[in-house]
Design a protein around this nucleic acid. Sequence first.
DNA 1: CGTTATTTGTGCGTATGTATT
DNA 2: AAATACATACGCACAAATAAC
Lengths: 249, 249
Amino acid sequence: MNSKDQSGEAAYKVVARELRQGILQRRYADGTRLPTEAELATEYQVSRQTVRRAFHDLVAEGMVYRVPGRGTFAAPRDGQYLRQFGSIEDLMGLSLDTQLEVLRPLRRQVDIESASRLRLDSDVVHTVVFRRTHFGDSFCHTTVHLHPAAAAALDDVPELGQEGAVSDATIIGLLDTRLPSPIAEAEQSITAAAAERTLADALGCQVGDPLLRVDRTYLTTDLQPVELAINHFLPEQYSYRVKLRRNTH
Amino acid sequence: MNSKDQSGEAAYKVVARELRQGILQRRYADGTRLPTEAELATEYQVSRQTVRRAFHDLVAEGMVYRVPGRGTFAAPRDGQYLRQFGSIEDLMGLSLDTQLEVLRPLRRQVDIESASRLRLDSDVVHTVVFRRTHFGDSFCHTTVHLHPAAAAALDDVPELGQEGAVSDATIIGLLDTRLPSPIAEAEQSITAAAAERTLADALGCQVGDPLLRVDRTYLTTDLQPVELAINHFLPEQYSYRVKLRRNTH
DNA sequence: CGTTATTTGTGCGTATGTATT
DNA sequence: AAATACATACGCACAAATAAC
C-alpha cells in the first residue's frame, strides 16, 4: 500500500466512490465527458494506473462506459433509476443518492399476515410507511413491518416517528449497526400489481397503473427475520436486473 | 501491445477465457484452488500483472473469488457463496410441467432494437411468439428474438414454424444441445407493464392489467448473445424469488 | 488525404503491504 | 519466523481509436 494511505481505504476506492457519487448526483449530465485519466490522476495525486483501477470497477458496475480516443461517459439511463441490487450492500448504499420521506410514522399495530411472515409469536408488528425519492422524483413507496426488537432498536431515530420527516437513511442501514447481530441475507419476491389509491397518490401515477412490487424479508446472521419491506416501484423509473448462471451439476 | 500478440486478442483475455472455460467445465472442483498468479504467468508466458488483469474480470463476473494468502477458487454454484442468483436450469426446467403454443411462427424480420440487444452487425433477427401454459392455464406470453446462427440451429424443429403447434420444449433447451457452445448465462431485467390487446388476448386478462415483464438475454460460454426473450407473466400465477446475501466472503 | 494531438487500452517491471499457512 | 499468495500503487512504453487540422 502507498505510504500516503493513512485511512486504510484504498486510493482507487476513494476515486471510484467519489466518481460514483458524482454520477448518481448527476454532476455529469448524459453525454458529457468525465475528466480524463490524466486529469483525475493530477486531481487526486495518484498515478494514472490507480485512476484506471477505479474506472474498471465503475465499468463493471455499469456506471460508465469508455470509448478509446474519446473519453469516459456516464452510462445513459433512459429516465430510469438504474441500480444493481445483487447484494445487501447495494441496498444499504441506496442512501447515497436517495431520500426517504415518512408518510405514516412508526407505530405498533396488529397485522396477522406480516407477523406471520416475520415468524412472530404474537400478531403485533411495528409499521412505518415512507416514500423514496431521487432528486425530487418519487420512485418507490415502501411499507416496512418490523420485529418488536428491531422497532425498539430504532427508538433513537426521531425522524421515523414524525410524519413528513425526511432522511437519507435506509432502514436496514440503521438496523445493521443497532441490532446485536447484523443483517446477513434477504429473501426477495418480485411481482406486478396495480396501483391502489394510496400508492397512486404517493407516487403520482393513476389508479390501476402497473407497478413493480418487491417484497423483501431481511434476516440477521442467526436467521431471525427482523424486517419485512413491501416496495412498489414505478416501472418507468425502475427495473430490476440480475445475472443468471449455470448450475453445472 | 506485447510483441507476442499476433492474433489481435489481448493476452489477458486469452487467459480469462481459458480459465472461464475450465471453470464452466468443472475442471476445478468446488473448494480446490486454481493455479496461482505466478504459475499462470509462467504457463502463459505473461507477466503476473496480466494474470491479475484476467482474474479481475473473472471476479467481476462472479466466476471466482479470491482470498489473500490462500488462493483463487471457483465460485461454488450451489448458492452458498453465490453473488448472483437464480439458475438457468430453473428456466430449462420449465418444460417439465409447462407447454408452449406457437402464436406466430419463427420467421426472419428486421428489428433494429432487438438486433442491437443481441449485439448483431445486421438488423435482421429471427422471431417467434408463443404462449406458455400450465395445465391448460396460460400464464406467460413470450416473444423470442434469435441470433441468425441460433435460428439456423433450430431448422430441424418443425413445431416452431407452424402456428398453433404445441410443444413441451424450451428454446434454450433446444439451443443448448444444438449450438457449438452451450448456454452459460443469462442477463435478466424485470419490470412491470400494462397488458396490451395482444397480450391480454393471449393470457386471458383485461387490457391494462398489470403484468410482470421479464427480458432475458442468453449468452453462450464464449459470451455471445444468442437469444433475447421478452416474457409477460400474469402476476397471480408467477412471482420471481431471489435471495440476496452479504458480499463479504 | 494524411498528420498530429488526445485519450483510452494493453503489457510489463518494481516495490511494498497484508493475510494465510 | 519464514514462505506463500493476493492487494495496492507507481512507473514506463507502446498500441489503437478518435478527433481536429
